[in-house]
Computed example of a mutant assay.
Amino acid sequence: MSGQVGDLSPKQAYALTQFRVRIQDILPDLPAQHDQYLLRWLRARSFHVAKAEAMIRKHIDFRRNMKVDTIISDWTPPEVIRRYVSGGMCGYDKEGSPIWYDVIGPLDPKGLLMSATKQDFMRTKIRNIEMLQRECRHQSNKLGRNVESVTLIYDCEGLGLKHLWKPAIETYGEILTMFEENYPEGLKRVFLIKAPRLFPMAYNLIKHFLCEETRRKLIVLGGNWQEVLRKHVDAEQLPVAYGGTRTDPDGDPRCRTMINYGGTVPRSYYVQNFIKAQYDTSVTISRGAVLQLDYHVSAPCSLLRWQFSSDGADIGFGVYKRTEEGSEQKVAAMLEVVPSERYNAHLVPEDNMITCAEPGMSTVSFSPRGSATRWRCFLLHCEHIRPDRTRLTPT
């Protein structure tokens, strides 16, 4: 049995019933509640109900932390990402699924990662996925049948050593992991076209981020790639540049109004080119160690602001609230306020803040990760600012 609606074994049907009962409390927080949507999570965990429940509950936390429900309307990617990250949605396959194009050649990984934070790239990808999911729902309503996945055409022409830069591979791996954990069954198939000789090396670097089911959906096409694409996509839905008849209104065969082709990022976008500041503190942190800085928030609606960079590698950072005043408490026992993530602060200094709704003790935590043995973390600012704008030093 396929595990799809209408093709369930008795065991699969029972698992679906149990799954719905066990997640009854979070159903209103999900983007959809119908069986087709819930079955995606069960298939991703081979109909193991407890594992599927753990996966979808983690997804609810992800949606809340990343503000996924409003990311399309309330957040816009930085200009450098909008202009220089290639790709876009263009047309539908013969079954009505949206088609997304990733165009690797024009990408400038180093320029992009020197100009925007890893978190901005992650939010951009989430925003794109949510837009595609919304398009799938639109197609489902329009066609009267369930459309839940996307066809991806991955144009590998121009893939080179610059794309195998370690920070770029790490960032891409984190994005793939995020996709696998939060959008199961989101891909119908992936066509890889114009793959150069370097492709096997590139694939070996990222394949461990992909589950076995996703790997099976990868289709590497040879010299007849245009013919194969036309078997799955009607010519009028396929750009002329990819073997179809579709053009932009002005006749552009590459459909640039829908597919961005990126390019080399001008150095004027590089964030470090503008940072001319003396850091307040330089701290060396050993691998496996954690640096905690405590701030006593004495007034509600105060701001907690941080600015930092790291030397040589990215670094983990999170913000927590102590649940026990006046005692030593490890981060794991605190209330998570800003989830710990890896920041490419060795390329782009981090600058952000939160509003502390209630008084209490807040803790910022730095945690090195990776193969290096020691990190230097430069603290430009890490401060608590009261509503009257008075700055307080850490306790």
Rank of each mutant, 00 (worst) to 15 (best):
G6Q: 10
S9P: 04
A13W: 03
T17S: 11
R22V: 08
I26F: 12
I26W: 09
I26Q: 06
L30Q: 05
W41D: 03
V49Y: 04
H59F: 10
D69N: 10
T76L: 06
V80F: 05
R82Q: 15
V85A: 03
M89A: 11
Y92N: 13
L107F: 10
G111C: 11
L113R: 01
F121Y: 07
R134M: 12
H138I: 13
G144L: 03
V147W: 01
V150L: 12
L164F: 02
E170P: 01
Y172S: 11
I175H: 09
T177P: 02
Y183M: 00
E185I: 01
R189V: 08
V190E: 06
I193S: 00
P200L: 12
E213S: 10
E213Y: 00
N224G: 08
Q226E: 14
E227K: 11
L238W: 09
P239R: 03
V240R: 09
A241E: 11
G244A: 12
T245S: 12
D248H: 00
R254N: 12
I259D: 01
T264K: 15
R267W: 09
Y270D: 14
N273Y: 10
F274K: 15
Q278M: 13
D280N: 13
T281Y: 06
R287H: 13
A289N: 12
L291P: 00
Y295W: 09
H296Q: 14
V297C: 10
P300A: 02
C301H: 14
C301R: 15
L304V: 13
F317W: 00
T323L: 13
V338F: 09
P339F: 11
H346Y: 13
T355K: 14
C356F: 03
E358H: 05
S365E: 15
F366S: 04
L380F: 06
I385D: 00
R386G: 08
P387K: 06
